[in-house]
Design a protein around this nucleic acid. Structure first.
Length: 528
RNA sequence: GGUGCUAUCGUCUAGUGGCCUAGGACAACGGCCUCUCACGCCGUAAACCCCGGUUCGACUCCGGGUAGCACUACCA
């Protein structure tokens, strides 16, 4: 009896969604799709003090941008949050009554107890006793219902005293968790402390309780989450046992962590700032601390590239294939091909992926994306680009796209098509602008002037070398025994302002006769 | 400190006892192409953490070290 696959991604709205979280979401999504199951999204906002406004919207929008679809729970629809499914609500802060019931169940079955020790008292205890832990060895010295009795505890609660509910863990029991990626992991219950399950201060459970209750109620079949949860997995197993839900306990898979590109440790927001790359899918303006974090979307990444890059950070299909569409990933993804060790985040590889996907896009599609960027550079004011410029765009992009990784970089590669150079690159001049260059250019001007306007543009279907311009200019060069390189490079500097860019006749094609001549004259007047 | 997880080129990884003289990709370097800069193509350099054991044979299995990471909150 195969259970329907239901997985969940359950982020906390404490800030922007970290790229590691994105990968966790992606693996969950791939697994769900592959098995024809459901992908749920639940918000774990049980820490009221850490809530960041806008984080929820951010997470949902980011997943939507990346194409990680949500079948149930909270999702992004038409620019706002929508809730779907009949296991809701899907925000833990809206499930208080549900948790009350299960906390009571645990109290009544003696799997949990009330504790009144304040955070300050606990801190004092920890300062006083090295390695202090609230557990079987110490709980009878503490201020809880095990010591004072349940009646007295209830009296104090009724009197308004703050309390928590702790899980009572029996010591000296080996607990084995089967992990789909790592196999059996066994730990002894004595190292676990009596975890706080519920805090009356904000009338909310902690992660551990809420997580188990929700996964059970939402009929989650597989828990795929980060490795940081592995140490508490045995606690979760104990919780399933205490509730009597072992029959339907989900299977676990703990994913390796994403590590810093340099040095050691988990990848963090600070690494992105320090090394200059985004750690978040979308740009995020944190309303709580005022910080701004850069995002992959705003940096010019395609969602497909981010997905492909992330998918391969910890998973591999054992072939040499590198490029995977979402559909291919869904088809081929497998938890037992997920690596066990953490992966250092290699930003350079991410750029390469984006380069690949950019080459796959049509010039027209890229033109659409590039249009606003071009407009910004050309005329930051509102006036629309002239239609002639717009029509030219796909052709220009076709000439330069193979040399960029990101759409915004198109400007640096193609700016001279739209704006005549006013300055000339020092290095290029030093290397390519010779003593004879002014004379060459003056003569070239005359040669070009003699070419009929109708012969100017390379005919469709011909290569740049097959046009009239090439024939005429090459003949002229040969006739005077000028060096091809020396003339062409000087010419290029006149048109581009530097020794770079596509084939020269591709440039003259787009510039047209008038503009080409104008630029040579201009250069001649500036460069002596 | 305790507990757990992990360990192949700089990085992501392939490798499930003989196909390994350890494969691919990114990055690096060199060459080709060429009017330039790129792209592209070709090539070079680059790794099995250490010590034992099992075995005819170990990158692969076992044990022990070591190292890295995670967890050790009324955070998730």
């Amino acid at each position: 009896m195969a259970r329907k696959v239901r997985v969940r991604f359950a982020p906390s709205p404490t800030g922007a969604l970290h790229i590691g979280g994105v990968r966790t979401a992606l693996y969950n999504y791939l697994f769900a799709r592959q098995h024809g199951g459901d992908m749920l999204l639940r918000i774990e906002d049980t820490d009221s003090t850490r809530f960041v406004p806008g984080a929820e919207e951010y997470i949902l929008e980011a997943l939507d941008w990346l194409g990680i679809g949500i079948d149930e729970g909270l999702r992004w629809e038409n620019g706002k949050i929508a809730q779907v499914g009949n296991h809701g609500p899907y925000r833990q802060s809206e499930r208080r009554e549900i948790y009350h019931q299960y906390v009571d169940q645990l109290i009544q079955s003696n799997h949990a107890y009330y504790a009144f020790d304040t955070p300050e008292q606990l801190d004092a205890k920890r300062a006083e006793i090295p390695n202090f832990q609230y557990d079987a060895r110490t709980r009878m010295q503490m201020d809880n219902s095990l010591v004072i009795g349940i009646e007295e505890a209830k009296r104090r609660i009724a009197a308004g005293e703050k309390y928590v509910v702790r899980f009572l863990i029996e010591p000296n029991e080996d607990i084995t968790v089967h992990d789909l990626i790592r196999g059996d992991v066994t730990i002894n219950s004595s190292i676990l402390d009596d975890k706080v399950l519920y805090k009356s201060a904000d009338d909310l459970p902690t992660y551990h309780l809420a997580n188990i209750v929700d996964d059970h109620l939402m009929e989650v079949s597989h828990v795929i989450r980060g490795e940081e949860w592995l140490p508490s997995a045995p606690l979760h197993v104990l919780l399933y046992r205490a509730f009597g839900w072992t029959d339907t306990m989900p299977e676990f898979a703990h994913l390796p962590l994403l590590l810093k590109p340099d040095g050691n440790g988990k990848l963090s927001k600070r690494d992105g700032d320090r090394l200059g790359f985004p750690v978040f899918p979308l740009e995020f303006h944190n309303q709580k601390d005022g910080s701004v974090s850069s995002g992959y979307r705003e940096s010019g990444y395609f969602p497909e590239a981010v997905i492909n890059f992330l998918a391969l950070l910890g998973w591999h299909n054992s072939t040499d294939q590198e490029m995977f569409s979402m559909d291919e990933l869904i088809q081929q993804f497998s938890l037992d091909r997920v690596s066990k060790s953490g992966a250092k985040f290699d930003y350079e590889k991410g750029k390469w992926f984006n380069h690949q996907y950019l080459q796959l896009k049509s010039n027209e599609e890229l033109a659409t994306i590039f249009m606003p960027i071009l407009q910004f550079h050309l005329s930051p004011a509102t006036c629309p680009l002239p239609p002639a410029t717009c029509n030219l765009l796909p052709k220009v992009i076709g000439l330069v796209k193979d040399r960029v990784n990101f759409v915004p970089e198109l400007w640096e590669q193609a700016n001279f098509f739209f704006v005549a150079p006013t300055e000339y690159d020092e290095k290029s001049l030093a290397k390519r602008w010779k003593e004879d260059s002014p004379r060459h250019m003056t003569e070239l001007l005359a040669v070009l002037e003699g070419i009929d306007e109708n012969d100017w543009t390379t005919p469709a279907g011909k290569t740049a070398e097959e046009g009239v311009l090439n024939t005429v200019v090459m003949n002229w060069i040969a006739e005077h025994e000028y060096g091809v390189g020396i003339v062409m490079n000087a010419f290029r500097i006149c048109l581009v302002g530097a020794a770079r860019g596509p084939h020269i006749w591709n440039i003259t094609d787009i510039l047209g006769k008038d503009e080409t001549l104008r630029r040579v004259c201009q250069a001649l007047s500036v460069l002596k």
